[in-house]
């Protein structure tokens, strides 16, 4: 089965990268210590993880409904606007410009970054923040990811947008699937070709990068690594013909919003606030009745 092979390879490569990075950036001692008292650490971030799980579950279970709603009811096809916006901003199309630097080496690099680098970038902070003294950073990360997915899902429902490779084969090349057609087996199970605005690859990568900045004192080495990877992932989405420049800008904006939410709000806080809100409503209601 092609999907299984692709997945196995992904797991193997990413696991290797994770182990290396953990040993160098976090250090074996910290990891061992964290693993010993994993129980309270897990408990500490149980709520945000549950929230993330709920959002992912909604996304996974409503795929058909969302697709039907997006394509048959709402039908906001913004592809031509994205094309023209890119053109208007630069006079020429930034994706085409990036692709004009095409070499075999660069393509291999960006394909690697887009698939393996991205998976690594998303998973590593979980390990790194898990090994810290406090679980605040991990909770922030999870809340920020949740916000990314929730807002992303909303945009995907509201807008139909095809990426450059799908619109104009004369101007743009679909480098990823030309170089690595099997990867579509993988991405197809996760996403559809009408969901390119905003770029979740960019937003999640940039979220990790912005949080690396927030935690730069704890992991100084992680900041440049995350920065390099996040920017490479963003560029790769355009170089490979998957996203427009506008998607990447929107993805970065979404990352900023998500990090803001992650840093300033906690799931506990939101739950408490909503409980307070309903309580006052209830009290007022009761008071009115009396």
């Amino acid at each position: 089965m092609a999907l299984v092979e692709v997945l196995l390879e992904l797991v193997f490569v990413v696991a290797t990268m994770l182990v290396t990075a953990t040993l160098v950036i976090v250090g074996p001692r910290n990891v061992a210590a964290a693993l010993q008292d994993f129980r309270w650490r897990l408990e500490a971030c149980l709520l945000p993880v549950a929230a993330l799980a709920v959002v992912l579950l909604i996304r996974w279970s409503t795929g058909d409904i969302v697709q039907r709603l997006e394509r048959r009811v709402l039908r906001n096809n913004i592809t031509p606007y994205l094309f023209e916006l890119d053109q208007a901003l630069f006079g020429t199309n930034p994706v085409a410009v990036l692709q004009s630097f095409q070499t075999e080496l660069l393509t291999s690099f960006f394909v690697f970054v887009y698939i393996y680098g991205y998976a690594f970038l998303l998973i590593f902070p979980f390990i790194a923040y898990f090994a810290l003294e406090e679980m605040d950073e991990l909770s922030t990360l999870v809340v920020a990811f949740t916000a990314n997915y929730a807002i992303g899902l909303l945009c995907y429902t509201l807008f139909i947008a095809f990426g450059p490779r799908n619109v104009d084969p004369l101007l743009f090349e679909g480098l990823l699937y030309d170089a690595f057609p099997q990867s579509r087996t993988l991405t197809n199970t996760i996403n559809q070709n009408t969901n390119v605005f905003p770029s979740l690859h960019t937003s999640l990568s940039m979220t990790v990068f912005f949080l690396a900045w927030v935690t730069r004192e704890k992991y100084p080495l992680w900041l440049p690594v995350a920065g390099f990877l996040a920017i490479s992932v963003s560029l790769s989405t355009m170089y490979l013909g998957i996203h427009w420049f506008s998607d990447v800008v929107a993805g970065t904006a979404l990352a900023l919003v998500s990090v803001y939410i992650g840093v300033n709000y906690t799931i506990e806080g939101l739950v408490a606030a909503s409980r307070r809100f309903f309580q006052t409503q209830l009290e007022r209601h009761n008071a009115d009745r009396e």
């Binding site: 092609a2 699937y177 030309d178 057609p181 099997q182 579509r184 087996t185 197809n188």
Partner: peptide
Amino acid sequence: APNPGAMGGL
């Protein structure tokens, strides 16, 4: 298959 390349691969 998801695309022509993957179909050719099969």
